[in-house]
C-alpha cells in the first residue's frame, strides 16, 4: 500500500463524513440511513491509518497484494449495498402502488355515497 493510496482512503473517509453531515444539517437524510456511510468512513479511516490491517487480512486470505484486498472488500460492500437498495426500491414501489390503489378506491366509494345521497 503506497502512501498515495493511504491518502486517498483518508480523503474518502473525510468526504463521506462531510457529505453525511451536510445531508443531516439540511434534513435530507434520516439518521438511521447515515449509519452505513459512517461505517464506511470509519473503515477507510482505519485502513488509511493502519495499513497493517490490509496486510494481515491479505496474508490470511492468501491474496498477494494488500491493495487487492482493499479493492475486493470495497467491491463486495458496494455490490451488497446495491442489492439491498434494489430490494428497498421494490418494496417502496409496492407500498406506493398499494397507497395509490387504496386512495383511488376510497375516493370512488366516497363519490358513490355522495351520488346515493343526492338521489335520496
Amino acid at each position: 500500500m503506497t502512501l498515495g493510496l493511504r491518502i486517498i482512503l483518508l480523503v474518502i473517509a473525510l468526504f463521506s463524513c462531510a457529505f453525511v453531515i451536510r445531508k443531516i444539517r439540511k434534513s435530507q437524510m434520516r439518521i438511521e440511513d447515515t449509519l452505513f456511510w459512517l461505517a464506511i468512513a470509519v473503515g477507510t479511516l482505519a485502513l488509511g491509518i493502519f495499513p497493517q490491517i490490509a496486510f494481515w487480512c491479505a496474508k490470511l486470505l492468501g491474496i498477494q497484494s494488500p491493495v487487492n484486498f482493499v479493492y475486493l472488500v470495497f467491491i463486495f460492500i458496494l455490490l451488497f449495498k446495491v442489492f439491498i437498495l434494489t430490494v428497498q426500491v421494490s418494496q417502496l414501489q409496492e407500498r406506493i402502488k398499494n397507497l395509490t390503489q387504496n386512495i383511488a378506491i376510497y375516493r370512488y366509494k366516497n363519490e358513490q355515497e355522495d351520488g346515493d345521497e343526492k338521489i335520496e
Binding site: 406506493i96 402502488k97 395509490t100 390503489q101 387504496n102 386512495i103 383511488a104 378506491i105 375516493r107 370512488y108
Partner: peptide, 25 residues
C-alpha cells in the same frame, strides 16, 4: 361511468389489481 381514477400511473398490473381489490372488498 363507474370510474376508479388512479392519481398516478401504475401500469396494467397495478391498475387491474385496483379493480381486484375493489371486487374482493
Amino acid at each position: 361511468y363507474n370510474l376508479i381514477d388512479l392519481p398516478i400511473n401504475l401500469g396494467l398490473a397495478g391498475a387491474f389489481q385496483t379493480g381486484v381489490k375493489y371486487g374482493y372488498q
